[in-house]
Design a protein around this nucleic acid. Structure first.
Lengths: 215, 215
DNA sequence: CAAAACACCCAACCTTAGTAGGGTGCATGC
DNA sequence: GCATGCACCCTACTAAGGTTGGGTGTTTTG
């Protein structure tokens, strides 16, 4: 462990960023922690002086900026460990973050102890990710075709239904006859226990249908 | 202003709570700030010692606990000002909070300056609420029939369309003939620039149609 | 291996959605 | 007063949605 530890915290909530920065200094022995609130400020802070020992990244930046920012960061500075912090504990989010090259993922609701463990783990060039099944409070904002009892093909059709496409355009999109689409629709409707596609749409309102990542 | 200022911060995100507490101490001259992470801890902290000068409340507690907690708090301790903090800046949320008896409402993304102003305002027994129209990042999660260029009757029909009701049931609900409903639907569709009710539903997905409060 | 499940096709049929073209009554505003 | 807009009603029509009952292949599974 080096003599001085530095970090950059990127979070568009100033209070949260300050809280994290303060915690790093008081409990994790960081000497200087910069707080930035936008991607632009982040890049200028990164280029200003020595590269930091750790980057803290809020996942819920506007327009999914966190993931977009992760890739160029990892290509330019592959050695800096990045810990992504998220407000909700969706395992899908962690998968995306992990795939994008981050070293760790942690929830904002995590206790300070867990937070310290994650930080120290990353400083030792280790990773910090949940094991897969998460016990706490799944928000259930996403649904998979499988969970709804649908076949893969029915899932594709349902996704297009939820986009508001009529049968004819669904048929064109999937290179099917319109009749086949109708049959898939019938299967979907009976599975969901609704009478028509409009009820299906309103029933699934507010939820997101995940395309290929199931179970 | 009294000699010592105390506060209780209730937020189920420990880091956020710590950040707010730290900010209150360093920038708002608070002497002691307790951080609690659940409603139960909040009540015990409240009864333990002198009542605080300020309560900070995270709106997004599980199961809408914030509103449920606000009412008994205001009935038992009506003099303690409560500042509710929310992660998103929905004006509807502010209305609910205001109706529940809180003295202030502020967004987590607010800058520290705004945060200080809100806190000092509440300490002076004033309130802190947005004026109605929100200039920053209007999420536009709500729509009125008037904003869409619809008549009042068309607005009622559209509300039922968005619930997924077919024309026949809309006619029953509004005591109309099905044909009249169809005409209203036609008017709505041409106004919204869509071809059928399904496109209308998907176009307005994620938004809420306000019933009677317009402009 | 045989049955079941799936994906695809066709024809026929009924229901619902939406449009067009008629009409009435009532309010508002020039 | 008279035009305009709105709400309401009717018939008639076309297009789209959805069901039923056929049929053919492939894959999965007991």
């Amino acid at each position: 462990m080096s003599a001085t530890k530095t970090a950059i915290v990127l979070d568009d909530h100033p209070l949260v960023a300050r809280g994290i920065a303060n915690f790093l200094q008081s409990h994790c022995n960081f000497s200087t922690v910069k707080t930035v609130f936008s991607a632009n400020d982040f890049w200028s802070a990164l280029c200003d002086g020595e590269p930091p020992n750790l980057v803290l990244l809020d996942f819920w930046l506007p327009d999914g900026m966190a993931l977009a920012l992760l890739e160029p960061l990892k290509s330019k500075h592959p050695t800096i460990p990045v810990l992504v912090i998220s407000a909700d504990d969706d395992f899908i989010v962690q998968q995306k973050v992990q795939a994008a090259g981050a070293q760790g993922f942690i929830n904002k609701q995590a206790t300070p102890d867990i937070f310290m463990l994650a930080v120290s783990s990353l400083l030792k060039n280790k990773t910090w990710f949940k094991k897969s099944i998460y016990s706490q409070a799944p928000k259930e904002l996403t649904v998979t075709a499988h969970e709804l009892g649908l076949t893969a093909r029915q899932g594709e059709v349902l996704a297009l239904i939820l986009l508001g496409l009529p049968n004819k355009r669904i048929a064109q999109t999937l290179s099917l006859s319109e009749q086949t689409v109708k049959e898939h629709v019938s299967g979907i409707l009976s599975r969901l226990g609704v009478g028509n596609r409009i009820e299906a749409i309103t029933k699934l309102r507010g939820k997101e249908l995940l395309p290929k990542s199931y179970e």
